[in-house]
């Protein structure tokens, strides 16, 4: 089974964020970047799917990692290789953040096709920065594949895959779907493994293809803000809601103030 996992580099979630000068994104030049959390679970799921196939003797499987972006993308790909992916595909696009989900989904779909397709394409349920949760589903449509979103369990069957997907209110749906397909992977599905030192060393020798949008048949009008169907007007910090009363002081003082407010003002204790 060939499984491709998409890895998105995102600013370290602990970063303090400031809007950039033209107010279209954040100032990210100085920030540390990490692999999007859900994508580490997608990566783990890819490895487990391949290992499962290998264990049953059916086929050794190949886990491939794919990322679009500048050098940060190459860095998260190297982490994926260190975790155990066989090879990587870097779609080198400096302007990736000016595009929208549609542009990135097209790139993912084209890259998968150029790489000869796959049995399963995995993405994270959503990115920690944009949080739309739609890129993988759009890629499924553009590839003409079936998909399941918010997946919390995967098992291989004769005909394809049996997956558990999360619905609202603590409900779980079980679906069977044919391969090739796209799954968007929810947190909590597995415990991503850590890269071992041996894995990190081995990663250096693994293949990393580098493709430009051109190589994917995407002209300048297809990428960046020109290719995007949504146009960013502004990024800004949300307005402060003045409803909240901030209680200051030492921990003991703040605690005392809070308890007094809860008792006498809100009358809830």
């Amino acid at each position: 089974m060939k499984v491709i996992a998409c890895l998105r580099p995102v600013p370290d979630p602990a970063s303090r964020l400031f809007v950039n000068d033209d107010r279209t994104w954040i100032k990210d030049a100085e920030l540390g970047f990490v692999t999007n959390e859900a994508d580490t679970h997608a990566m783990e799921a890819a490895l487990e799917l391949c290992e499962g196939g290998a264990a049953s003797g059916s086929d050794p499987g190949e886990a491939v990692v794919l990322s679009i972006g500048r050098d940060r993308a190459a860095r998260v790909l190297r982490e994926g290789l260190a975790m155990g992916a066989a090879r990587a595909i870097h779609v080198a696009d400096d302007d990736v953040e000016s595009g929208d989900e549609y542009v990135r989904a097209r790139m993912i779909a084209r890259a998968v096709e150029k790489d000869g397709g796959a049995d399963v394409l995995l993405t994270g349920v959503q990115s920690d920065d944009l949080g739309g949760g739609v890129t993988g589903i759009m890629a499924a449509e553009l590839l003409g594949w079936a998909h399941a979103s918010v997946v919390v369990g995967i098992a291989a069957t004769e005909a394809g895959l049996r997956v558990r997907r999360e619905l609202e209110g603590g409900m779980i749906e079980t679906r069977e779907l044919a391969t090739p397909c796209v799954l968007t992977i929810q947190l909590g599905i597995n415990q991503p493994r850590y890269a071992t030192l041996r894995g990190i060393m081995a990663a250096k020798k693994k293949e990393m293809k580098v493709w430009n949008p051109d190589d994917l048949g995407m002209a300048s009008g297809d990428v960046g803000s020109e290719g995007a169907l949504c146009r960013v007007m502004e990024v800004r910090a949300p307005e402060r809601d003045h409803r909240v009363q901030m209680l200051s002081g030492s921990p003991a003082e703040a605690a005392a103030r809070l308890v007094e407010k809860l008792r006498l003002e809100a009358k809830v204790i």
Partner: peptide, 12 residues
């Protein structure tokens, strides 16, 4: 965006 730390205004 950014887990609701920022808002992004977009048009189509």
């Amino acid at each position: 965006v950014f887990n609701a730390k920022m808002h992004m205004r977009v048009t189509t």
